[in-house]
């Protein structure tokens, strides 16, 4: 099981690859759309890559609830347990 920091680091890496942002800027309170300027296709790409990286399932209907990076980290942690 990965702890919060490990999940955040792994997710930040994916977001950085996808957006060109610095991984250090991908912090828990950031909103994917408002702060990180991630469109819906990029979000789905990030979800697909996160599912593979963390070996979890993030249902499509769940994605709309993942407003912030923290929401995603929390969901991934929960799905792993």
């Amino acid at each position: 099981m990965a702890d919060t920091n490990e999940v955040l680091a792994g997710l930040a890496e994916i977001v950085a690859e996808e957006t060109g942002l610095d991984a250090g800027d991908v912090t828990l309170e950031k909103s994917f759309t408002d702060d990180l300027d991630i469109d819906s296709l990029s979000m789905m790409t990030i979800v697909t890559l996160a599912e593979e990286k963390f070996d979890v399932r993030i249902p499509d209907e769940e994605v709309k609830n993942l407003t912030t990076v923290g929401d995603a980290v929390k969901f991934i942690e929960g799905a792993q347990n």
């Binding site: 296709l41 990029s42 789905m44 790409t45 697909t48 890559l49 599912e51 593979e52």
Partner: peptide, 9 residues
């Protein structure tokens, strides 16, 4: 890996 791994782009 199946259809779930196909990237949206």
């Amino acid at each position: 890996k199946g259809a779930k791994r196909i990237l949206p782009l």
